[in-house]
Structures are given as structure tokens and as C-alpha cells.
Design a protein around this nucleic acid. Structure first.
Lengths: 199, 199
DNA sequence: ACCTGAACACCGTTCAAGT
DNA sequence: ACCTGAACACCGTTCAAGT
């Protein structure tokens, strides 16, 4: 991370910026201040640089966001599994956990469907099952996460999830609304897949 | 829709604006020009009114978007069904079709998880099954739609889906990538639910 | 209550110029 | 190639004032 200095440089001088530094600062801002806290101008200010300087390292804002999303996807750690069912479940649980760790980026992933290399790598990791079955499971996982995040109004304001106001939850306890129900849905899905396909 | 007139009114005069007209214009703009084509200022201009006038009819932009999303959800027509399975499938297919008809709004729905009255009505329509089972199915549906839209880069540019450039589709034909696979996933899910629950 | 007028505090991006 | 400087064409929202 480059030191944040005020107005020392004149037209020809370099600031020593790298694409990695730009991504790192963007990620920190998005983590600390949510989606509205991230702007090109703010990243630049944080790096002690004029706004347009960023365009020497990044095509535009959308490209930067795509890069951040793919970076996040690259952090999905799939636990070693015994059997296709355990492996698939582990992969999807890990995906959900990673997405929940960075809610704002997760919403961007949902929006953009992940075309980056890590998204593709992730998609191919499940190919012990049929491609269709895996896509169905990924759709479920992503949809579930979207509902979790939307309900707690994350993706709007800051990072660590606001205390979540008492809503019209007619049944469940005050939990994250998630873990148990997610795993239940996953089991159902696997059961359904198993009735049609043989390992 | 109010006639688009230029600069006729002076400080005291009314323009005859209604909240419905604001919503209708917003929806038209979002349909024709995508998410980037919708701004408060542009809605106002389209209605022949100054930007701040909208705040007499709508709390802020986010509230307007929420209203539009719930309006869309209100358009889900669930076909009459025989049996819980056919009914659930019909409901989810109808939901997907409605979302696909308005891609930009659909992405907003995914982002905000639908707290409006129509979202709640929709959620309760499936309660012949358990609430968990229905939420799992809705998560799948929404996640699936998100992937469909993200992959064709809808939600970015204009409305009726650009001709979709040749991507790395390793298998499927050039179809919408959707109908068949969606229905397949739905069947799997229902099968999985059926193994654990009895009607 | 509904609107104009004017302003505030921002945006993303481009173009020209320096070294 | 990487940066400053200056600008363009926008944003959402607020506050005061008219009728």
C-alpha cells in the first residue's frame, strides 16, 4: 500500500502505483464502507493520486469490480472430500462462506455471474457430477446467499452486517437465517439428483 | 402519462404529477435504457418537471426502485394447478418468466430480496409445502435467473438482450441457456423434497 | 401539498500535456 | 508508461421560496 501523501508530485513524477495496490485499496474501501463507499475518486484519494491516474492501471470501474469479484472467488477453499456427494456439499458450503465474508462483492458476483478465470475454475471443480447438476446447485447457493444478504440489507451500508431489525420472521429463531436451512436445501437437492443419476 | 412540456410553469403552478405517473415513467426508462438509463433527473425531464419535484411523490431513489420491484412481483400469474407439485412448479416457472421479462428489475429484486407486499404474498402462495422447502425453491429460481441474466450481460445495457456473443459454452446449443435446465433442476428439487416429506 | 429556483457535494471518464 | 491538470457531462438530494 502506497503512503498517502498530499501534493508532492509534479506532472512528470511517478507515484509507484501498481494494479495490485489499486485492487487492494478498492477492496478495503468496499469492505469498510460498502458499495456506496467505493468510487474511483475515493480510491485515488486514498492512494494520494488524482482520479484519472487509475485508468493507467484499470480499464474502467466495471473491470475493476470484475477483478475484485474474481479475486474473491479465488479464495474459495474446498475441503478434501470422500465421495462425490460430500465433495459437492463441501464445495458449495465453502462458496457460500466465502461470499458471506464479503457481502458487497457477493452481490456484485450475483449481478455479473462471474466470467473470470476463478469463476470458471470453481465451476469445473464440481464436474464429477454432471454439468447441469452442478449448475443447478450453484444457482441454489447463489440465490440463497442473495436472499440472506438482501434480507439483512447488507450490500447497502457498511460491512459486518447491522444488528438486523426485528422483521416478520414468523418462525425461525434470530439466527443468521441460514446455516441449517442452507444445508437442508443442499441435502434435498442432492437427494433429487441421486434419484435420477447414478454415481 | 403527463405531456412533456418545456418551460411553461411558474413557481406556484402544478404539473399534475402523480406517484403512478412517476413509477410508470421510471419503469419505461428502465425497460428501454437499462439501469444506467434511469436517473431521477431523467425521469423528471421526461415528465417535464424539475428533478426535485419527484421528492414530493417518492421518498428517494431506493424507495422508487423497491416500489418498481414489488410492482413487477405483483404481475406473477400463477396458473391453476392440480396437486402440490404441479402448483409449486407452476408458481416458480411463472416467477422466472416474470423476472426474465424485465431483466433490470429482476436484478434489483435479487439485490433487495423483496420486502414489499407482493413479495410476501408470493412467498405465502407456496405454503402448501413447508416454508423451508418453498424458500429453497425460490432461492434456486432467483439464483438461476441471476445467472441467466448475468451471462447475457443483461442488467448492464439496454432491454431486449443483445444478440449474445459466442461465449465459452462448451456444450449447450445457442438457446436462452435456460428453459430445459431450469425445469430439470426444479424436478430434482421436488424429488429431493418428496423423499423427506409426505404430502 | 406540489412545484420552481438554486445550490451542494459528489460521480466516471476523456483529453492534453509533462517526464 | 505513468502521472498531473483541467475539464465535460452528468449524478442524488436539500433548502428556501412561491401559490
Amino acid at each position: 500500500v502506497v503512503a498517502r501523501q498530499k501534493e508532492s508530485r509534479r506532472p512528470g513524477e511517478r507515484a509507484g502505483l501498481t494494479t495490485e495496490a489499486v485492487l487492494a485499496t478498492a477492496r478495503r474501501l468496499i469492505h469498510e464502507h460498502g458499495p456506496d463507499g467505493l468510487s474511483m475518486r475515493r480510491i485515488a484519494a486514498e492512494l494520494g493520486v488524482l482520479p484519472n491516474t487509475l485508468y493507467s492501471h484499470v480499464a474502467d470501474k466495471q473491470a475493476l469490480l470484475d477483478a475484485l469479484v474474481d479475486q474473491l472467488l479465488g479464495e474459495v477453499r474446498v475441503p478434501p472430500g470422500r465421495g462425490w456427494r460430500a465433495r459437492a456439499i463441501g464445495l458449495l458450503q465453502a462458496t457460500r462462506a466465502t461470499l458471506l465474508s464479503e457481502p458487497t462483492l457477493a452481490m456484485l458476483y450475483v449481478q455479473r455471474a462471474g466470467r473470470g478465470p476463478n469463476a470458471i475454475r470453481l465451476a469445473q471443480q464440481g464436474l464429477q457430477i454432471s454439468a447441469e447438476a452442478f449448475r443447478v446447485m450453484i444457482a441454489f447457493t447463489v440465490g440463497f446467499v442473495a436472499f440472506e444478504l438482501g434480507r439483512s440489507s447488507a450490500g447497502r451500508s457498511a460491512a459486518p452486517l447491522p444488528p438486523l431489525p426485528p422483521e416478520l420472521n414468523l418462525e425461525g429463531p434470530a439466527q443468521p437465517p441460514g446455516d441449517a436451512e442452507f444445508n437442508l436445501g443442499l441435502e434435498w437437492l442432492m437427494d433429487g439428483v441421486a434419484t435420477r443419476v447414478q454415481d
